[in-house]
């Protein structure tokens, strides 16, 4: 028996919105410690790693480890049927063919159940080693989303250069070029508005806008985003999900021809 309940479906709704552009299908691995998803986009350029800890749920029970292949499009449609304040419960038997989503209104007067067929999927797990990154930047997630959106108008790729002075995003294309520099905030009253740079060595990497613009769909999950970068390795773009877990996106850099 697997059962996981969240008092408000808003978190799960936001998580689905944050992955649906990149993933068509994903395996949800459920164990005593929580729910984990690791899945690459079709082109194998980016990877989504989602972790929801069991202690972050209002109720969590997982008698036996389960791998449930889910269609993300269908799951997104189902989650859109829930109000943000509804309680959401995921339920499955030990060897499931289906998963049930149960939405209950706050006043308990409306109860909706949606059953979704599971799919068989081959697991393609990447082994991602613990990595010390040359630059780790924390910045407001809305600012990052804004910069990705603005610079996407100029080119297909954004170059991120990080040094002690700050972080610089730039894009160049046929119509011109653009760059945005953010300095480390001296001392911000509000933690959410801070730009913090932890730099060992300067880095300069180029990434496809398309993927960055998919990652920023996670912006509603967290006020801050953490970007971890080293030369010639994938970018890690991380959003905390309240007290329950995190979503990390990995993106392979573009390489010089």
């Amino acid at each position: 028996m697997f059962e996981a309940r969240l008092a408000q479906s808003a978190i799960l709704k936001k998580v689905l919105e944050a992955v649906k552009d990149l993933l068509t299908e994903a395996t949800f691995e459920c164990s005593d410690s929580g729910i984990q998803v690791q899945a690459m986009d079709n082109a194998h350029v980016s990877l989504v790693s989602l972790n929801l800890r069991s202690d972050g749920f209002d109720k969590y029970r997982c008698d036996r480890n389960l791998s449930m292949g889910m269609n993300i499009g269908t799951m997104t449609k189902i989650l859109r049927c829930a109000s943000s304040e509804d309680t959401v419960t995921l339920r499955a038997v030990d060897s499931p063919d289906n998963i049930i989503f149960i939405f209950e209104s706050q006043n308990k007067e409306k109860l909706a159940e949606y059953e979704m067929k599971l799919i068989n999927m081959d697991l393609e797990h990447l082994g991602i080693p613990e990595t010390m990154y040359s630059c780790v930047v924390k910045m407001p997630s809305q600012e990052f989303a804004r910069i990705c959106r603005d610079l996407s108008q100029f080119g297909e790729a954004i170059t991120i250069a990080c040094s002690k002075e700050g972080i610089k995003f730039s894009a160049a294309g046929d119509y011109g070029n653009a760059n945005v520099k953010l300095a480390q905030t001296a001392d911000s009253d509000k933690e959410e508005e801070a730009v913090l740079i932890d730099m060992q060595e300067p880095v300069k990497l180029t990434f496809a806008c398309r993927y960055l613009n998919s990652f920023v769909k996670a912006t509603p999950l967290c006020a801050q985003v953490k970007l971890s970068m080293s030369s010639d390795v994938p970018l890690v773009c991380e959003y905390q999900i309240g007290e329950i877990g995190h979503i990390r996106y990995y993106l392979a850099p573009k390489i010089d021809d």
Binding site: E124, G127, K254, D256, D257
Partner: peptide, 14 residues
């Protein structure tokens, strides 16, 4: 011109 690398070039399959 730039080419797009893939994740498998950095991380092995488990």
């Amino acid at each position: 011109p730039v080419n797009q690398s893939r994740l498998a070039g950095y991380y092995g399959l488990n």
